[in-house]
Computed example of a mutant assay.
Amino acid sequence: MMDWIPVVLVTFKILVLGVGMFFAVKWHYDQGKKEQDNGLEQRAVLRASGKVAVIFMLSLLGLGLFTFVLASTFGLDLSFP
């Protein structure tokens, strides 16, 4: 009985997340069809999301570089096997 609990819970989790994602995509699709503003607002949203993506990638690169420098400072072995 104990071996089936993770299988059941993971299956339930995947099912719930799948249904939630389906309805989220459907809701956003319906909202987009309802509010069509000649692409002007869409262009602004795409520009803003591009800026957020660039800032995220630069932050990720900075964090990786900081982690590498900190690990090298502490003398950790960072070579691949």
Rank of each mutant, 00 (worst) to 15 (best):
I14P: 01
L15S: 03
L15F: 11
L15I: 11
L15Q: 00
L15M: 06
L15R: 08
V16Q: 05
V16E: 04
L17K: 04
L17M: 10
G18K: 06
G18V: 08
G18E: 10
V19H: 08
V19Y: 10
V19M: 09
V19T: 00
V19W: 11
G20S: 03
M21A: 11
M21E: 12
F22C: 05
F22W: 04
F22V: 03
F22N: 04
F22P: 00
F23I: 13
F23Q: 14
F23K: 07
A24G: 02
A24T: 12
V25R: 06
V25G: 00
K26V: 15
K26G: 02
K26E: 09
K26H: 12
K26S: 15
W27S: 12
W27P: 00
W27D: 13
W27G: 02
W27I: 15
W27Y: 15
H28A: 12
H28V: 14
H28Q: 06
H28P: 00
Y29G: 03
Y29M: 10
Y29H: 11
Y29I: 13
Y29D: 14
D30M: 14
D30E: 12
D30Q: 13
D30R: 09
Q31R: 07
Q31A: 10
G32Y: 12
K33T: 02
K33W: 13
K34G: 01
K34D: 02
K34E: 10
Q36N: 08
Q36W: 13
Q36R: 07
Q36H: 04
D37I: 03
D37C: 00
N38R: 01
N38W: 01
N38S: 08
N38K: 02
G39W: 10
G39Y: 05
G39C: 03
G39K: 05
L40E: 04
L40F: 09
L40T: 10
E41C: 03
E41W: 06
E41Y: 09
E41V: 08
E41D: 04
E41L: 11
E41S: 06
Q42L: 15
Q42K: 11
Q42D: 15
Q42W: 13
R43G: 10
R43P: 02
R43Y: 14
R43I: 11
A44E: 08
A44T: 08
A44N: 02
A44M: 08
V45R: 11
V45G: 00
L46R: 14
L46W: 14
L46N: 14
R47V: 15
R47D: 12
R47A: 13
R47E: 11
R47Q: 14
A48P: 01
A48Q: 14
A48C: 01
A48S: 07
S49L: 09
S49M: 13
S49V: 06
G50C: 10
G50E: 09
G50D: 05
G50F: 12
G50V: 01
K51M: 14
K51E: 15
V52C: 11
V52G: 01
V52H: 13
V52S: 01
V52E: 09
V52Q: 01
V52W: 08
A53Y: 05
A53V: 03
A53D: 13
